[in-house]
Computed example of a mutant assay.
Amino acid sequence: MSGLCWWLVLAASVLVALGLPVPLRAEDGDIALYREIAGRVERGDGYYAAAAELHRQENYPLRPFVTVRSPVLALGHALIGGAGMLLAAWLILGMALTAWFRTLRDRPPAERAAVLAVIAAGGAALISPEVLHVHELWAGLLITLALGLGWNRRLQLGAAVCAVLLRELAAPILILLLFPFERRQFVRVGIAIGIVAAFYAWHAANVASVVQPGDPSSQGWFGLMGPAGLATYLSAAAGRAIPVWAAFLPLAGWMMHGDRLVFPWCAGVAGAIAIIARPDNLFWLLMFCPLYPAGLVFLVSAAILAVRRLRPARWMSVRMGQPS
Rank of each mutant, 00 (worst) to 15 (best):
4 L>E: 14
11 A>N: 01
11 A>L: 06
13 S>C: 08
15 L>F: 10
16 V>L: 13
32 A>M: 04
39 G>C: 14
40 R>G: 03
41 V>H: 09
42 E>G: 13
44 G>N: 05
45 D>P: 11
46 G>L: 04
49 A>G: 14
58 E>T: 12
58 E>R: 15
58 E>Y: 15
61 P>M: 04
61 P>T: 05
63 R>Y: 00
66 V>T: 15
72 V>E: 13
72 V>Y: 07
77 H>C: 08
79 L>P: 02
86 L>D: 01
92 I>P: 03
94 G>R: 03
96 A>D: 01
96 A>L: 04
100 W>R: 02
102 R>F: 12
103 T>F: 08
113 A>C: 10
113 A>V: 08
115 V>W: 01
125 A>T: 05
126 L>H: 04
127 I>K: 11
127 I>E: 04
127 I>C: 12
128 S>Y: 10
129 P>T: 10
130 E>K: 15
131 V>Y: 02
139 A>N: 05
141 L>V: 01
144 T>F: 05
145 L>Y: 04
145 L>E: 06
147 L>W: 02
148 G>N: 00
148 G>I: 01
150 G>W: 03
153 R>W: 11
154 R>I: 09
157 L>C: 12
157 L>V: 14
157 L>D: 05
162 C>F: 00
164 V>H: 01
165 L>V: 03
167 R>K: 15
167 R>Y: 12
167 R>H: 13
170 A>F: 10
171 A>P: 04
173 I>Y: 01
176 L>W: 09
180 P>Q: 06
181 F>D: 10
188 R>N: 15
189 V>D: 05
189 V>H: 07
199 F>M: 12
200 Y>M: 13
202 W>E: 15
202 W>N: 11
204 A>K: 14
204 A>L: 12
210 V>N: 00
211 V>A: 00
215 D>L: 05
217 S>I: 05
218 S>F: 11
219 Q>V: 15
220 G>Q: 14
231 A>N: 07
236 A>V: 13
236 A>N: 10
239 G>P: 06
241 A>T: 07
241 A>E: 05
243 P>K: 07
250 P>D: 02
250 P>W: 00
250 P>Q: 00
251 L>S: 08
251 L>M: 09
254 W>G: 06
261 L>K: 08
264 P>W: 13
266 C>V: 02
266 C>H: 03
267 A>G: 10
267 A>K: 13
270 A>S: 10
273 I>D: 00
279 P>T: 06
280 D>N: 15
280 D>H: 15
282 L>F: 12
283 F>L: 03
285 L>K: 01
287 M>G: 09
288 F>G: 02
289 C>F: 10
293 P>D: 04
295 G>M: 07
298 F>D: 05
302 A>Y: 07
305 L>I: 09
306 A>W: 09
308 R>K: 09
311 R>I: 15
312 P>L: 10
313 A>V: 09
320 M>Q: 10
320 M>T: 11
322 Q>T: 13
323 P>M: 13
